[in-house]
Protein backbone atom coordinates (compact mmCIF):
# COMPACT_ATOMS: atom_id res chain seq x y z
CA UNK A 1 0.00 0.00 0.00
CA UNK A 2 1.41 3.42 -0.96
CA UNK A 3 1.34 6.47 1.25
CA UNK A 4 -1.72 7.91 -0.50
CA UNK A 5 -3.70 4.72 -0.10
CA UNK A 6 -2.65 4.68 3.52
CA UNK A 7 -3.79 8.23 4.07
CA UNK A 8 -7.07 7.47 2.33
CA UNK A 9 -7.48 4.49 4.60
CA UNK A 10 -6.88 6.60 7.68
CA UNK A 11 -9.29 9.26 6.46
CA UNK A 12 -12.02 6.67 5.84
CA UNK A 13 -11.68 4.98 9.21
CA UNK A 14 -11.38 8.42 10.77
CA UNK A 15 -14.65 9.48 9.19
CA UNK A 16 -16.33 6.36 10.56
CA UNK A 17 -15.28 6.95 14.12
CA UNK A 18 -15.91 10.66 13.56
CA UNK A 19 -19.52 9.86 12.72
CA UNK A 20 -19.87 8.28 16.14
CA UNK A 21 -18.32 11.35 17.79
CA UNK A 22 -20.80 13.46 15.87
CA UNK A 23 -23.72 11.44 17.20
CA UNK A 24 -22.46 11.75 20.75
CA UNK A 25 -21.83 15.46 20.28
CA UNK A 26 -25.42 15.88 19.12
CA UNK A 27 -26.58 14.15 22.26
CA UNK A 28 -24.55 16.54 24.43
CA UNK A 29 -25.90 19.54 22.51
CA UNK A 30 -29.52 18.57 22.85
CA UNK A 31 -29.37 18.35 26.63
CA UNK A 32 -27.11 21.38 26.90
CA UNK A 33 -29.55 23.46 24.91
CA UNK A 34 -32.50 22.34 27.00
CA UNK A 35 -30.92 22.61 30.46
CA UNK A 36 -27.51 24.28 30.29
CA UNK A 37 -25.82 21.26 31.87
CA UNK A 38 -23.13 18.88 30.69
CA UNK A 39 -24.74 15.46 30.92
CA UNK A 40 -22.18 12.85 31.87
CA UNK A 41 -24.68 10.01 31.56
CA UNK A 42 -24.15 10.45 27.81
CA UNK A 43 -21.15 8.12 28.29
CA UNK A 44 -23.44 5.42 29.65
CA UNK A 45 -26.05 5.92 26.91
CA UNK A 46 -23.34 4.93 24.43
CA UNK A 47 -22.08 2.01 26.50
CA UNK A 48 -25.51 0.63 27.21
CA UNK A 49 -26.52 0.90 23.56
CA UNK A 50 -23.84 -1.64 22.72
CA UNK A 51 -24.37 -3.80 25.79
CA UNK A 52 -28.16 -3.99 25.46
CA UNK A 53 -27.79 -4.90 21.81
CA UNK A 54 -25.38 -7.65 22.85
CA UNK A 55 -27.86 -8.85 25.48
CA UNK A 56 -30.89 -8.86 23.22
CA UNK A 57 -29.15 -10.27 20.17
CA UNK A 58 -26.36 -12.52 21.38
CA UNK A 59 -27.75 -13.65 24.73
CA UNK A 60 -31.49 -13.72 24.11
CA UNK A 61 -31.41 -14.52 20.41
CA UNK A 62 -33.75 -11.75 19.32
CA UNK A 63 -33.39 -10.87 15.61
CA UNK A 64 -30.85 -8.17 14.83
CA UNK A 65 -33.16 -5.46 13.62
CA UNK A 66 -35.57 -6.01 16.48
CA UNK A 67 -32.69 -5.96 18.97
CA UNK A 68 -31.57 -2.67 17.49
CA UNK A 69 -34.86 -0.95 18.11
CA UNK A 70 -35.41 -2.67 21.46
CA UNK A 71 -32.05 -1.42 22.73
CA UNK A 72 -32.79 2.05 21.47
CA UNK A 73 -36.16 2.03 23.21
CA UNK A 74 -34.55 0.80 26.43
CA UNK A 75 -32.04 3.64 26.49
CA UNK A 76 -34.69 6.21 25.55
CA UNK A 77 -36.65 4.99 28.55
CA UNK A 78 -33.56 5.18 30.71
CA UNK A 79 -32.95 8.77 29.60
CA UNK A 80 -36.51 9.70 30.45
CA UNK A 81 -36.27 7.97 33.83
CA UNK A 82 -33.15 9.88 34.70
CA UNK A 83 -34.90 13.14 34.01
CA UNK A 84 -38.09 12.14 35.78
CA UNK A 85 -36.17 10.75 38.73
CA UNK A 86 -33.00 12.31 40.13
CA UNK A 87 -32.83 15.40 37.93
CA UNK A 88 -36.36 16.48 38.71
CA UNK A 89 -36.26 15.36 42.35
CA UNK A 90 -33.08 17.34 43.06
CA UNK A 91 -33.71 19.84 45.82
CA UNK A 92 -31.26 22.28 44.34
CA UNK A 93 -31.53 23.20 40.68
CA UNK A 94 -28.13 24.89 40.60
CA UNK A 95 -26.29 23.91 37.42
CA UNK A 96 -23.28 22.72 39.37
CA UNK A 97 -25.45 20.37 41.44
CA UNK A 98 -27.17 18.94 38.37
CA UNK A 99 -23.86 18.35 36.59
CA UNK A 100 -22.58 16.50 39.64
CA UNK A 101 -25.75 14.42 39.77
CA UNK A 102 -25.10 13.26 36.22
CA UNK A 103 -21.52 12.44 37.21
CA UNK A 104 -22.82 10.38 40.12
CA UNK A 105 -25.38 8.61 37.97
CA UNK A 106 -22.78 7.90 35.35
CA UNK A 107 -20.56 6.17 37.92
CA UNK A 108 -23.47 4.22 39.37
CA UNK A 109 -24.59 2.95 35.99
CA UNK A 110 -21.04 2.08 34.96
CA UNK A 111 -20.52 0.14 38.17
CA UNK A 112 -23.78 -1.68 37.66
CA UNK A 113 -22.81 -2.52 34.09
CA UNK A 114 -19.55 -3.95 35.38
CA UNK A 115 -21.48 -6.22 37.75
CA UNK A 116 -24.00 -7.21 35.10
CA UNK A 117 -21.70 -7.93 32.17
CA UNK A 118 -18.25 -8.28 33.75
CA UNK A 119 -15.09 -6.46 32.72
CA UNK A 120 -14.48 -8.21 29.39
CA UNK A 121 -15.12 -6.90 25.92
CA UNK A 122 -17.95 -8.62 24.12
CA UNK A 123 -18.22 -8.98 20.34
CA UNK A 124 -21.20 -8.02 18.22
CA UNK A 125 -21.69 -9.25 14.66
CA UNK A 126 -21.67 -6.81 11.78
CA UNK A 127 -25.07 -5.84 10.43
CA UNK A 128 -24.32 -7.36 7.03
CA UNK A 129 -21.26 -9.52 6.75
CA UNK A 130 -17.53 -8.92 6.76
CA UNK A 131 -16.75 -8.74 3.06
CA UNK A 132 -14.14 -6.05 2.51
CA UNK A 133 -15.08 -3.34 0.06
CA UNK A 134 -12.22 -1.70 -1.88
CA UNK A 135 -12.34 2.03 -2.63
CA UNK A 136 -9.36 3.53 -4.51
CA UNK A 137 -6.99 1.12 -2.82
CA UNK A 138 -8.41 1.56 0.67
CA UNK A 139 -10.42 -1.17 2.34
CA UNK A 140 -13.58 -0.69 4.32
CA UNK A 141 -16.17 -3.00 5.85
CA UNK A 142 -19.89 -3.00 5.17
CA UNK A 143 -20.31 -1.89 8.78
CA UNK A 144 -18.56 1.36 7.91
CA UNK A 145 -21.27 2.00 5.35
CA UNK A 146 -23.92 1.26 7.94
CA UNK A 147 -22.32 3.77 10.26
CA UNK A 148 -22.32 6.47 7.60
CA UNK A 149 -25.83 5.66 6.49
CA UNK A 150 -27.36 5.62 9.95
CA UNK A 151 -25.51 8.77 11.05
CA UNK A 152 -26.70 10.64 7.98
CA UNK A 153 -30.19 9.35 8.70
CA UNK A 154 -30.10 10.59 12.28
CA UNK A 155 -28.77 13.99 11.22
CA UNK A 156 -31.48 14.38 8.58
CA UNK A 157 -34.11 13.32 11.08
CA UNK A 158 -32.87 15.86 13.65
CA UNK A 159 -32.73 18.60 11.05
CA UNK A 160 -36.31 17.86 10.08
CA UNK A 161 -37.39 17.54 13.70
CA UNK A 162 -35.88 20.82 14.91
CA UNK A 163 -36.86 22.93 11.92
CA UNK A 164 -40.09 21.46 10.59
CA UNK A 165 -42.03 20.04 13.52
CA UNK A 166 -43.84 22.10 16.11
CA UNK A 167 -42.34 20.25 19.04
CA UNK A 168 -38.83 20.59 17.63
CA UNK A 169 -39.32 24.31 17.20
CA UNK A 170 -40.63 24.46 20.76
CA UNK A 171 -37.41 22.81 21.93
CA UNK A 172 -35.33 25.37 20.07
CA UNK A 173 -37.40 28.18 21.53
CA UNK A 174 -36.78 26.76 25.00
CA UNK A 175 -33.06 26.76 24.33
CA UNK A 176 -33.09 30.40 23.28
CA UNK A 177 -35.17 31.68 26.18
CA UNK A 178 -36.80 29.44 28.76
CA UNK A 179 -38.92 32.11 30.34
CA UNK A 180 -40.32 33.42 27.09
CA UNK A 181 -40.96 29.85 25.94
CA UNK A 182 -42.90 28.97 29.06
CA UNK A 183 -44.90 32.21 28.73
CA UNK A 184 -45.82 31.08 25.22
CA UNK A 185 -47.33 27.96 26.72
CA UNK A 186 -44.43 25.59 26.09
CA UNK A 187 -43.94 23.13 28.93
CA UNK A 188 -40.24 23.50 29.68
CA UNK A 189 -40.32 20.39 31.85
CA UNK A 190 -41.59 18.31 28.99
CA UNK A 191 -38.91 19.73 26.67
CA UNK A 192 -36.23 18.74 29.16
CA UNK A 193 -37.71 15.25 29.45
CA UNK A 194 -37.78 14.94 25.69
CA UNK A 195 -34.19 16.12 25.40
CA UNK A 196 -33.00 13.42 27.81
CA UNK A 197 -34.97 10.75 25.95
CA UNK A 198 -33.64 11.93 22.59
CA UNK A 199 -30.00 12.07 23.56
CA UNK A 200 -30.46 8.66 25.15
CA UNK A 201 -31.67 7.32 21.83
CA UNK A 202 -28.95 9.01 19.79
CA UNK A 203 -26.22 7.90 22.17
CA UNK A 204 -27.51 4.33 22.06
CA UNK A 205 -27.47 4.33 18.25
CA UNK A 206 -23.86 5.49 18.33
CA UNK A 207 -22.94 2.72 20.75
CA UNK A 208 -24.72 0.03 18.70
CA UNK A 209 -23.34 0.82 15.28
CA UNK A 210 -19.72 1.10 16.41
CA UNK A 211 -19.77 -2.04 18.58
CA UNK A 212 -19.31 -4.55 15.71
CA UNK A 213 -16.03 -2.80 14.80
CA UNK A 214 -14.56 -2.02 18.22
CA UNK A 215 -16.40 -4.56 20.41
CA UNK A 216 -18.23 -3.36 23.48
CA UNK A 217 -17.62 -3.33 27.23
CA UNK A 218 -18.95 -1.73 30.39
CA UNK A 219 -16.80 1.36 29.92
CA UNK A 220 -16.46 1.86 26.15
CA UNK A 221 -18.76 4.84 26.44
CA UNK A 222 -16.42 7.03 28.47
CA UNK A 223 -13.79 7.55 25.80
CA UNK A 224 -16.29 7.80 22.98
CA UNK A 225 -18.43 10.28 24.88
CA UNK A 226 -15.55 12.45 26.03
CA UNK A 227 -14.23 12.63 22.52
CA UNK A 228 -17.74 13.37 21.36
CA UNK A 229 -17.75 16.25 23.77
CA UNK A 230 -14.44 17.48 22.39
CA UNK A 231 -16.06 17.31 18.97
CA UNK A 232 -18.95 19.41 20.22
CA UNK A 233 -16.53 22.07 21.47
CA UNK A 234 -14.48 21.90 18.29
CA UNK A 235 -17.56 22.53 16.21
CA UNK A 236 -19.03 25.16 18.54
CA UNK A 237 -20.84 24.06 21.68
CA UNK A 238 -24.60 23.85 21.23
CA UNK A 239 -24.34 24.14 17.46
CA UNK A 240 -25.67 21.01 15.73
CA UNK A 241 -24.01 21.57 12.36
CA UNK A 242 -20.84 22.21 14.33
CA UNK A 243 -21.27 18.92 16.17
CA UNK A 244 -21.28 16.97 12.91
CA UNK A 245 -18.38 18.91 11.42
CA UNK A 246 -16.44 18.72 14.69
CA UNK A 247 -17.00 14.98 14.97
CA UNK A 248 -15.82 14.21 11.48
CA UNK A 249 -12.78 16.49 11.69
CA UNK A 250 -11.79 15.11 15.07
CA UNK A 251 -12.18 11.53 13.84
CA UNK A 252 -9.98 12.12 10.82
CA UNK A 253 -7.32 14.07 12.75
CA UNK A 254 -7.18 11.36 15.38
CA UNK A 255 -6.93 8.58 12.83
CA UNK A 256 -4.18 10.38 10.90
CA UNK A 257 -2.35 11.21 14.11
CA UNK A 258 -2.47 7.62 15.31
CA UNK A 259 -1.51 6.25 11.91
CA UNK A 260 1.23 8.66 10.95
CA UNK A 261 2.67 9.82 14.28
CA UNK A 262 2.13 7.33 17.09
CA UNK A 263 -0.69 5.00 18.00
CA UNK A 264 0.42 4.95 21.64
CA UNK A 265 -0.91 8.43 22.14
CA UNK A 266 -3.99 7.96 20.00
CA UNK A 267 -6.36 8.75 22.85
CA UNK A 268 -4.41 11.84 23.81
CA UNK A 269 -4.86 13.54 20.41
CA UNK A 270 -8.54 14.29 20.82
CA UNK A 271 -8.04 15.93 24.20
CA UNK A 272 -5.02 17.83 23.03
CA UNK A 273 -7.22 19.24 20.29
CA UNK A 274 -9.86 20.05 22.90
CA UNK A 275 -7.34 22.01 24.96
CA UNK A 276 -6.00 23.80 21.88
CA UNK A 277 -9.50 24.80 20.78
CA UNK A 278 -10.31 26.13 24.23
CA UNK A 279 -7.11 28.09 24.14
CA UNK A 280 -7.23 29.58 20.68
CA UNK A 281 -10.80 29.46 19.42
CA UNK A 282 -13.18 28.80 22.30
CA UNK A 283 -16.27 29.50 20.18
CA UNK A 284 -15.37 26.53 18.01
CA UNK A 285 -15.25 26.39 14.23
CA UNK A 286 -18.86 27.33 13.61
CA UNK A 287 -19.60 29.42 16.70
CA UNK A 288 -21.87 28.85 19.66
CA UNK A 289 -25.34 27.55 19.12
CA UNK A 290 -28.55 29.10 20.27
CA UNK A 291 -28.22 30.23 23.83
CA UNK A 292 -29.80 32.61 26.21
CA UNK A 293 -28.60 36.18 26.37
CA UNK A 294 -27.60 37.49 29.79
Amino acid sequence: MGIYEQILQFVLTGLTIGAIYALVALGFNIIHNATGIVNFVQCEFVTLGGMMMYTYYSLLGIPLILSFFLSMATIILLGALIERGPIRAARSKAIIVLVFITIGLSSTIRGTALLAWGPDNVPLPSFSGENVIRILGAAILPQHLWIFGITVGVVIFLQYFFHRTLIGKAMRATAVNRKAASLMGISVNRMVLLSFAMSGGIGAVGGMIIAPITTSSYDTGIMLALKGFSAAILGGYGNNAGAVAGGLILGVLESLGAGLISSKFKNAFAFLILLLVLFFKPTGLLGYGESERV
Partner: peptide, 18 residues
Protein backbone atom coordinates in the same frame (compact mmCIF):
# COMPACT_ATOMS: atom_id res chain seq x y z
CA UNK B 1 -18.64 -2.17 44.28
CA UNK B 2 -16.48 0.91 44.71
CA UNK B 3 -17.68 2.66 41.57
CA UNK B 4 -21.33 2.05 42.37
CA UNK B 5 -20.90 3.13 45.96
CA UNK B 6 -19.24 6.41 45.06
CA UNK B 7 -21.73 7.11 42.31
CA UNK B 8 -24.71 6.32 44.47
CA UNK B 9 -23.46 8.36 47.42
CA UNK B 10 -22.73 11.29 45.15
CA UNK B 11 -26.18 11.13 43.56
CA UNK B 12 -28.14 10.61 46.75
CA UNK B 13 -26.40 13.32 48.73
CA UNK B 14 -26.83 15.80 45.89
CA UNK B 15 -30.47 15.02 45.28
CA UNK B 16 -31.56 15.10 48.90
CA UNK B 17 -28.93 17.11 50.78
CA UNK B 18 -27.20 19.35 48.24
Amino acid sequence: YNIIAYGAILTLVLVFLP
